[in-house]
């Protein structure tokens, strides 16, 4: 008796996915989320690696400047950065970016800072004697970097950067504030559209969004595991 009622409630709340193109819309929203995150992640890894190497340079000015950049990106909430990129740039410099571009810009700047710090940490964790031993057997700087430093750095970097990647994917839900419609916002549109007819559907919609995020992030951690295992062999 009671269980059939629950079953009924559950099936009505999930029925919203079969109205019109609702489920396809949600998947398209997920695609927006993934593509913004993917572009930002690729750019962040590229610029972050360079930034991380720059941070290891032993020069006072370079160190202070990169420290300022890193701290600024860490302290400022991503939402504030998004507003600065979307509205602030237009106000102060007259540059009008689309919501998507502003989001990718902010996530790349943020990802570069975080990734750079990870790369710096990984590079510096390679013990001094590893470099010295390389030099002692007559390797060039390039060879030392490619054959000694890089493999050890990557082993440390892979799990830490996967953590950053999943964080970036989840933070993309903020882009709705600069007018980009992604998966969470489409979920809210579906909830709003049905709030009078199926008020219970919010649970169903959020549950599906939960699994979507979970699945995307899970794929990344699987990938990380495979990479880690391959390196150990």
């Amino acid at each position: 008796m009671l269980s059939s009622e629950i079953l009924d409630a559950v099936s009505t709340s999930f029925s919203v996915f079969f109205q019109g193109k609702n489920f396809i819309r949600l998947l398209m929203g997920l695609w927006v989320t993934i593509s913004i995150a993917a572009v930002s992640v690729v750019l962040s890894i590229f610029f972050g690696t360079i930034f991380g190497m720059i941070m290891t340079i032993k020069n006072r000015v370079v160190r202070i400047l990169s420290k300022i950049y890193l701290e600024f990106m860490r302290i400022m909430p991503q939402l504030v950065l998004l507003f600065l990129a979307y509205y602030g740039l237009t106000r102060s410099l007259g540059i009008s970016l689309s919501g998507e571009t502003a989001s990718i810009l902010v996530f790349t700047l943020w990802g570069t800072a975080e990734m750079g710090d990870l790369v710096r940490g990984a590079l510096q964790s390679v013990p001094r004697h590893q470099y010295e031993s390389g030099m002692a057997i007559g390797l060039t700087n390039r060879q030392i970097f490619c054959h000694i430093v890089l493999p050890q750095t990557l082993r440390l970097l892979v799990p830490m950067s996967m953590n950053l990647v999943t964080r970036m994917i989840k933070t993309t839900s903020l882009v709705v504030f600069v007018g980009v419609i992604e998966v969470v916002k489409i979920g809210q549109q579906i909830i709003e559209g049905n709030r009078l007819k199926v008020p219970t559907c919010s649970i169903a919609v959020y549950a599906v969004i939960f699994f979507m995020y979970f699945f995307v992030c899970w794929v990344f951690s699987l990938l990380a595991n495979i990479l880690e295992k391959r390196q150990k062999e």
């Binding site: 019109g20 709003e192 559209g193 709030r195």
Partner: peptide
Amino acid sequence: FCDKKPFGYVDENG
């Protein structure tokens, strides 16, 4: 608005 029925919202067909 994209989520304020019935004034401005996105329907099930987008």
